[in-house]
Design a protein around this nucleic acid. Structure first.
Length: 643
DNA sequence: ATAGGGTTAG
């Protein structure tokens, strides 16, 4: 015979959704079981930790408890510390501290310090550390480890080391935390030194090293260590896949994912989101589709984060319709990341109005937008030329939604005005910003000057950039492009000379194309191998055909060279997107669109070449450049020459 | 009585 208490607990164990939880809650209130503090504690932690997206409900439940105990406080502090507003846990901790009958325990400090680390407040962290000392809990194994992580998050590796040194018997978890602290603060050598001194290691310690190395950009060191590891778990594999994706090693990410599967280990949501992220960056649609097929069978499509990554992959591969299908299939499981990614996807394909509509649907659905949502929304307005709408949402974000615009939002506004040709307005906006404009803000404005050929303003803006970040090659190239479009070849030459004097090299443009599930990368002016030869040969044939059949005339304005005539034409001919498209046509096996991913913005000449190829060859070409998608079909582009 | 620290994602 079950007691009503046991019955209630067994019901809770089965409850995974807020809906079933509410039923249990109603039942418990009716039977008066909620007078039992143990049951009440169980209800609170279940709602906070087990049920996803129910923190709001948990908070309300907590507020109705007349005299919450330490466990209840700790539970809600924990929930808030893991939320996107960890600073909200502080007032709760303060409230608990006011009640002297409720002394905080090691759990309280572990959770509240985690929160301080999450919102990177060294000030709050130091104060909490002092209080922990007062309760004699600072050397507690768990509290001490959290202190180490908190100081690392706040950038103070010395304090982390000091806390660690005072711990009585640090175990392997504490050692791992201090190694991570060094990596976190950018000290790879320090991390290695501690790692070599560790008295004991397990697999996780090696995984810590793998993660640290890849985050520091040391892919080769990670690879070397990985190959020496006698035992590897799914975290080791996922770490490598994610690390490759972060460092632009896409084929390696694909290869490791395949090997993980071949070894009989089951990929988890992290390895999957990692490899999808690689597909998204590389524009690897074919590999992405294979992953989608795998996930349909494996059951990973139940996981929200995996769906979000898949959605993003489809949009970044140029298939915004597929992205929309994934999005709709998520039904009511869509979270703020899903909505924001879908808005960004529509925006980068030029569907500004649709992105705005989605924003309103999201709000109606009951999801409150955050700062990132507004970046997508403003980006959508700017890429669709919706200047007034953009300004309206910028005003609304603080007035209606209570979100203070960050520098990124100001950047979106500069882009919005600049792209639309309102350069004076954009400049005035920058000058009256309440926060100091960063190099990125000025660079956005310089980009707009380059699109609209405003030499005078470009020179002014470049001055500011020379103070903030004089060595950015892109800035020099933009300025030189402004001069080139205006036909000021002497000034172009001067920029080029100063670049040589300052030893600034132009960031090489590259373009990638996926053929047979492998990414091929072309760099302008490079290449002696067979692949390049194949591309060059095809390109010559293509250029001849579009000249004869399409009336192509080279546009040499966007070339950074103080060279004349024929040579200039030759330089544009070498642009990487032309090589990639030629290679794609050479290897063409069906009428599928040719898809290219490029690291910089597409130039005018390449843009018109793509238009002509799409017409003469009756082929669809999709180019994802640094800022948006261009879909070429029958001689026109989806960007309507607005980029 | 109930829970917690280190590695992979967003």
């Amino acid at each position: 015979m079950l007691s009503s208490e046991q019955f209630c607990l067994s019901l809770l164990r089965e409850s995974k959704t807020l809906k079933t939880f509410k039923q249990i809650h109603a039942f418990v209130s009716k039977t008066g079981l909620d007078k039992d503090t143990f049951i009440l504690g169980k209800l609170l932690i279940h709602c906070t930790i087990t049920i996803s997206d129910a923190l709001h409900y948990a908070h309300n439940l907590f507020l109705k408890i007349p005299n919450p105990d330490v466990f209840m406080y700790n539970t809600l502090i924990r929930g808030l510390s893991e939320s996107d507003t960890p600073q909200r846990s502080i007032p709760l901790f303060v409230q608990m501290r006011r009640q002297l009958s409720l002394p905080p325990d090691s759990f309280s400090f572990a959770f509240i310090l985690k929160a301080a680390g999450n919102f990177r407040s060294l000030k709050a962290g130091i104060q909490l550390h002092r209080q922990a000392i007062g309760f004699g809990l600072d050397t507690h194994l768990f509290v001490g480890t959290t202190l180490v992580s908190m100081y690392a998050e706040s950038g103070s590796v010395q304090s982390a080391q000091k806390v660690f040194d005072e711990m009585f018997e640090p175990n392997v978890v504490a050692w791992n935390a201090i190694v991570t602290a060094y990596f976190r603060c950018g000290e790879v050598n320090g991390a290695e030194r501690i790692f070599n001194r560790m008295p004991f290691r397990n697999l996780t310690s090696l995984n810590v090293m793998l993660a640290g190395y890849t985050k520091a950009g040391e892919v080769d060191l990670a690879r070397e260590l990985f190959s020496q590891m006698p035992l590897k778990d799914v975290v080791s594999w996922s770490t490598m896949i994610v690390g490759f994706a972060h460092n632009g090693c896409f084929n390696e990410a694909f290869g490791f994912f395949r090997e993980l599967q071949r070894g009989g280990m089951a990929p988890n949501e992290v390895s999957l989101t990692g490899v999808l992220h690689a597909c998204a960056q590389a524009g690897a649609f074919d590999f992405g589709k294979i992953l989608h097929g795998y996930m349909q069978k494996s059951g990973h499509l139940q996981i929200i984060s995996v769906n979000n990554a898949l959605l993003d992959t489809y949009s970044r591969c140029g298939f915004v319709g597929m992205a929309r299908l994934v999005f709709e299939d998520m039904l009511e499981k869509k979270n703020i990341v899903s909505w924001t990614s879908m808005m960004a996807g529509l925006a980068m394909h030029g569907y500004g109005k649709e992105a705005i509509e989605l924003f309103h649907q999201m709000v109606d659905f009951g999801i409150w937008p955050d700062g990132i949502t507004f970046i997508s929304l403003l980006y959508a307005c700017s890429h669709a030329g919706l200047m007034e709408e953009g300004y309206r949402y910028f005003t609304q974000m603080s007035k209606i939604y209570g979100i203070q615009p960050a520098v990124e939002h100001y950047g979106c506004m500069v882009d919005l005005y600049g792209r639309a040709g309102q350069l004076q307005k954009a400049y005035e906006f920058v000058v009256q910003m309440p926060i100091p404009p960063t190099d990125i803000i000025w660079r956005t404005l310089l980009g707009a000057c380059s699109i609209h050929g405003n030499v005078k303003l470009a020179e002014q803006v470049k001055e500011r950039l020379s103070d903030l970040d004089p060595n950015d090659s892109g800035d020099h190239v933009l300025l030189s492009n402004v001069y080139a479009v205006a036909g000021k070849w002497k000034d172009v030459a001067a920029v080029r000379r100063s670049m040589t004097d300052m030893r600034i090299k132009k960031t090489p443009g590259w373009s990638m194309i996926e053929v047979d599930k492998t990414m091929y990368r072309f760099v302008a002016g490079e290449g002696q191998n067979e692949i390049y030869k194949e591309a060059y040969d095809k390109l010559k044939e293509i250029m001849l055909r579009i000249t004869v059949e399409g009336g192509y005339v080279p546009e040499v304005g966007s070339v950074l060279h103080d060279i004349e005539g024929e040579e200039k034409e030759f330089a544009v001919l070498l642009h990487s997107e032309k090589l990639a498209v030629a290679f794609g046509i050479a290897r063409l096996r069906d009428r599928r669109p040719i898809r290219i991913v490029k690291n910089l913005r597409i130039c005018r000449d390449c843009h018109s070449v793509m238009q002509l190829i799409s017409k003469v060859y009756r082929l669809e070409i999709v180019v994802r450049d640094r800022s948006r998608f261009h879909s070429f079909e029958n001689g026109t582009c989806s960007c309507r020459d607005y980029w």
